[in-house]
Design a protein around this nucleic acid. Structure first.
Length: 633
RNA sequence: GCCGGUGUGGCUCAGGGGUAGAGCAGCGCACUCGUAAUGCGCAGGCCAACAGUUCAAAUCUGUUCACCGGCUCCA
């Protein structure tokens, strides 16, 4: 006798074993969208046979768990189609991921983007025929024999630490897989293959490169359509396109990875920096500036030569070796050491908007997000070891103010621990990692651990912001450093009159000012808020004889400190407005006979439209009510 | 760096072995206009670079460079 229940529903079978799908049916839970089962909390195939009773749930394709199964099964469906079209192909791994799935293929022949429709068509054929999916548990040695032709599966099987493995078969295709999967391919309707790329087997560049095919699948056709539309809209937000359209920056073959900033881009960047300076001054930071090129000896002493050389550029001055700085810390230390410091001077918070050069491999460059020269909004804080938590907490609050209050970003936090290539003792690393953990936990900050991703001199807390298509980019970081102060003999005189070594905190908020700007462009889709907009106000004379009045207004607004342009072209009003809208200017001021006579401006806001005629005082009042973190306090 | 793709006027793109095309932007002229594109005209390109095949290359081949999508790496 087997008893099953689901909430207040229950059923019994006078048998020793039963198929979960039958249980679901008699519990009255079945419908077309059900693709798997959950038995006592464990996801299983609908066809799975159980020999004890328990809690049973039906997993629908539109639940988060069901969607993952659906996508995973779609990856298998794709693999079967590829096997038909490219017999002899082998497969690596093919998991469900955040917005879909991929499968890494060692294809017999070359698969290109143009082949995706063909593969998709084959997939629909198989799904239409309702190809059955079945699971089989095999002892490992049998599985090894079964997959003898497949180097990838054999490698995976031999690493599995269990006596048996499960194999899923559908038609001519079979795959080593934990499952569960849909009962048959007819459950898969709404899918699309998206892109193709190379990917190293098991993620190591020492291994062969396989062909990775990305795709996605959804429970409903509307969701798939919405997702594809989202991808298209995201493309329109791409900071590289908007950077061109809005004349913010450009990239040139003559300087790969070295962006050129135009006047409008600089207007945004300088505004960001003004804001940044204000906020740091409020919090007890003072600013320094250190040289671009420094003696190679300094970098040997700092450990960069041993741990970071691959990413550095070198040069020679008067036959002596020098390095272009990839980080600002050694420079900061030299400034610290120009005087004998007291515990009363600590924490000493030195900021530096340092332009650093790092050699990045050609394939990773990406607009403003990944470059070879960027401006770090750096600060190095020298601090007594007992004050770490307090200081780290204060930095996290600063980060939160920036990201959430001012820019409205979602962000995630990671704690990155000791990497393989690093300096210092285990005790030092443990102390540093614990200090960061402590700060995170005492502020109830949710975080994940990113093992082995710390800097070579210490662990770090990283802040990741999302771009328009969900890629995340590291911006802020807080790094604890127990190494450099010792290496450079950095000291302070304590209350006890003795010399002590301070701890150093390296931290950035924007991270790279360039990257942060890239993310802002996508975040706002180019429509910067009033305080950041490169052109805040565009004056639009209706006819040529209003240009003089427009220019007079511009003078006034310059004196108010605004960024203002006048459209002096002999175009129609509609055209000038359209162009200003496309440039995403927050305020357009239409001026014609009426305004000129009354000394007014016709105010149009880019999203609210025509706000009517206003005196200059009234307009100023509107501007004063705009969000502006440069004016608070 | 690796795999795949792409490279044609400022921008978006068509063409494709026989002396280079469109729209937008630019310039000129006319219009002097009331809240998302006025009309007409003009000018603008060694078709990424370098080799090769050919009577002839933007077009075919090779190499290089840059860019795009990923991988690896990272702020």
């Amino acid at each position: 006798m087997l008893q099953f229940k689901n909430g207040d529903k229950s059923c019994e079978f006078d048998k020793n074993e039963i198929i979960l799908h039958d249980v679901i049916k008699s519990l009255g839970l079945d419908n077309k969208k059900i693709i798997a089962a959950k038995f006592n909390g464990e996801l299983m195939d609908l066809s799975r046979c159980v020999n004890s009773g328990g809690e049973v749930e039906a997993v629908s394709a539109d639940s988060p768990e069901g969607l993952e199964i659906l996508r995973h099964s779609t990856a298998h469906l794709m693999a079967q189609a590829i096997l038909r079209l490219y017999p002899g192909s082998h497969f690596g791994v093919g998991p469900a991921i955040k917005d879909g799935f991929y499968y890494d293929v060692d294809a017999a022949g070359t698969i290109t983007e143009n082949d995706l429709p063909k593969i998709e068509a084959e997939m629909r054929k198989i799904a239409g025929a309702g190809e059955k999916v079945s699971r089989e548990d095999m002892p490992k040695d049998e599985a090894l024999k079964f997959f003898a032709e497949d180097p990838y599966k054999t490698e995976l099987i031999s690493e599995i630490d269990a006596p048996t493995v499960s194999v899923y078969k559908q038609g001519e295709y079979a795959d080593l897989c934990r499952g569960p999967h849909v009962p048959d391919a007819s459950k898969i309707h709404n899918f699309k293959l998206l892109s193709i790329a190379g990917a190293y087997w098991r993620g190591s560049e020492k291994n062969k490169m396989l062909t990775r095919i990305y795709g996605t699948a959804f429970a409903n056709p509307d969701e798939l359509k919405a997702y594809i539309k989202m991808l298209e809209e995201a493309k329109l937000r791409d900071h590289r396109k908007l950077g061109k359209d809005l004349d913010l920056f450009s990239l040139h073959e003559e300087g790969p990875g070295f962006p050129f900033f135009h006047p409008k881009g600089m207007a945004v960047m300088n505004t960001l920096i003004d804001f940044w300076r204000r906020e740091h001054n409020k919090r007890g930071y003072t600013e320094i500036k250190t040289p671009q090129i420094l003696d190679r000896e300094l970098w040997i002493r700092s450990g960069h030569w041993d741990h970071y050389r691959e990413n550095m550029y070198f040069t020679e001055i008067d036959e002596k070796p020098y390095a272009i700085k990839p980080m600002n810390c050694p420079g900061s230390i030299l400034v610290y050491k120009t005087q004998l410091r007291s515990y009363r001077d600590l924490p000493m918070r030195l900021t530096e908007l340092g332009c650093v050069h790092r050699h990045e491999r050609s394939g990773v460059l990406h607009g403003l997000m990944r470059v070879r020269c960027f401006t770090q909004d750096d600060a190095h804080t020298y601090i007594e070891p007992t004050k770490i938590k307090e200081e780290v907490t204060a930095i996290m609050e600063l980060d939160k103010y920036f990201y959430t209050n001012v820019f409205g970003f979602k962000y995630s936090v990671e704690l990155s621990t000791r990497p393989e290539d690093s300096m210092g003792t285990d005790e030092q690393w443990e102390a540093a990692e614990n200090a960061l953990k402590d700060a995170l936990e005492s502020t109830n900050t949710p975080y994940t651990i990113n093992p082995g991703d710390g800097a070579f001199y210490g662990p770090k807390i990283d802040f990741h912001l999302e771009d328009c298509i969900g890629r995340t980019w590291q911006c802020g970081t807080i790094q604890l450093d127990f190494q450099m102060p010792g290496r450079f003999g950095v000291t302070y005189i304590g209350e006890d009159g003795a010399e002590h070594t301070p701890v150093m905190i390296h931290r950035v908020v924007f991270g790279s000012v360039e990257r942060f700007m890239g993310i802002l462009i996508e975040h706002y889709a180019g429509a910067f808020p009033y305080w950041l907009a490169p052109v805040q106000v565009k004056i639009i004379p209706i006819a040529d004889n209003h240009v003089d009045y427009a220019k007079k207004l511009q003078e006034t607004f310059f004196n108010w400190g605004l960024r203002v342009e006048v459209d002096t072209r002999s175009e129609k009003l509609g055209k000038k407005i359209r162009d200003a809208q496309l440039q995403k200017v927050p305020y357009m001021l239409v001026v014609g006979d009426k305004e000129q006579a009354e000394n007014k401006v016709g105010v149009r806001e880019r999203s609210k439209g025509d706000l009517g005629s206003m005196t200059l005082d009234e307009f100023k009042n509107v501007l004063d009510n705009e969000f502006n973190p440069l004016k608070s306090r």
